[in-house]
Simulated assay, not measured.
Amino acid sequence: MDTYVKASLLPGASKASQLRTRTVRAMKIPVWEETLTYHGFTHQDAARKTLRLCVCEDPWLRRRRRAPPLGELRVPLRKLVPNQARSFDICLEKWRLTKRSKSLDTARGMSLYQEEVETEVAGEERGRVLLSLCYSSQRGGLLVGVLRCAHLAPMDANGYSDPFVRLFLHPNTGKKSKFKTSVRRKTLNPEFNEEFFYSGPREELAQKTLLVSVWDYDLGTADDFIGGVQLGSHASGECLRHWLECLGHSDHRLELWHLLDSRPVQLSD
């Protein structure tokens, strides 16, 4: 057999949380020895999500039609202890076929959910973004790093997006207040690692608002808004804490994940 293991998080968008190992060819006792990583995974995710592992036979190597998985295993992640590895030696279960909601099959900008497990899919998040903030005393300004996004909502018909990130420091005007990253093609978990600079004293920056928005690039038509987050003195929770800690400690780089809101932020002049 030519087999691989496919991992996904339930409930959730199947392609946004789908990872897989390499294919091991011509083996009935395959060994992978691989580590799959979900970026942006939180304690809240562990409390409500289940890891699904499917052992599948690769149809492309033998030019056959795709067959159902050979077996699967579901692990409720709430049973795991943080920072402690746990091993399992469990027999695979028969693959479970679940219904797909017909109302979502043709909805542009929403995930095609393969699984509906215990919770409604309507409440699924739009994704999250990893940002770094650092006030540089040497350069006299704020360094904003857009590191990566995770579990973005798919906006294209192929089930993926072509994401990029826009930054806007309000109430500044002109090009120096607006930046955007490069576009990452056909992915829901893009990695950017790009950094941008806003000059100004800390007292002045403390009165401003940083708007971070994630978009799906479309050629010839308007880009699709995926989600955004607002950082500044008017924010709350983790967004406010990230902003205040950055401006309160010079030359200290602080990274933090932020959930994306599906509603665009409206800023007054």
Rank of each mutant, 00 (worst) to 15 (best):
H39E: 13
H39S: 14
H39C: 07
H39W: 07
H39Q: 12
H39M: 10
H39I: 04
H39V: 10
G40S: 08
G40P: 09
F41K: 11
F41H: 10
F41N: 06
T42D: 08
T42N: 11
T42S: 15
T42R: 12
H43Q: 13
H43L: 11
H43Y: 07
Q44F: 08
Q44P: 13
Q44H: 13
Q44S: 14
Q44I: 11
D45M: 12
D45N: 14
D45Y: 08
D45F: 10
D45E: 13
D45H: 14
D45P: 15
A46W: 04
A46G: 12
A46N: 09
A46K: 09
A47I: 04
A47H: 08
A47Y: 04
A47T: 08
A47G: 08
R48W: 02
K49G: 12
K49R: 13
K49D: 14
K49C: 13
T50Y: 13
T50P: 15
T50S: 14
L51F: 09
L51C: 14
R52M: 15
R52P: 11
R52T: 12
R52I: 09
L53T: 14
C54V: 10
V55C: 11
V55N: 12
C56K: 03
C56I: 02
C56R: 07
C56A: 04
E57L: 02
E57R: 03
E57H: 01
E57Q: 06
E57A: 05
D58H: 06
D58A: 11
D58L: 07
D58S: 15
P59N: 06
P59I: 01
W60D: 15
W60A: 15
W60F: 11
W60H: 13
L61E: 03
L61R: 07
L61Y: 02
R62Y: 05
R62N: 11
R62I: 08
R63K: 06
R63S: 08
R63W: 00
R63L: 07
R63T: 03
R63D: 11
R64W: 00
R64P: 09
R64Y: 00
R65S: 06
R65M: 06
R65K: 06
R66W: 01
R66H: 05
R66D: 08
R66G: 09
R66T: 13
R66C: 09
A67M: 12
P68K: 01
P68M: 03
P68N: 02
P68S: 04
P68L: 01
P69F: 05
P69T: 01
P69D: 08
L70Q: 02
L70P: 07
L70I: 04
G71P: 12
G71T: 02
G71H: 04
G71E: 06
E72V: 03
E72C: 05
E72I: 00
E72W: 01
L73G: 05
L73Y: 07
L73F: 02
L73I: 02
R74N: 03
R74T: 07
R74V: 01
R74K: 04
R74E: 12
R74D: 10
V75H: 07
P76W: 00
P76H: 05
P76E: 02
L77Y: 00
L77F: 02
L77M: 09
L77N: 02
L77S: 03
L77Q: 04
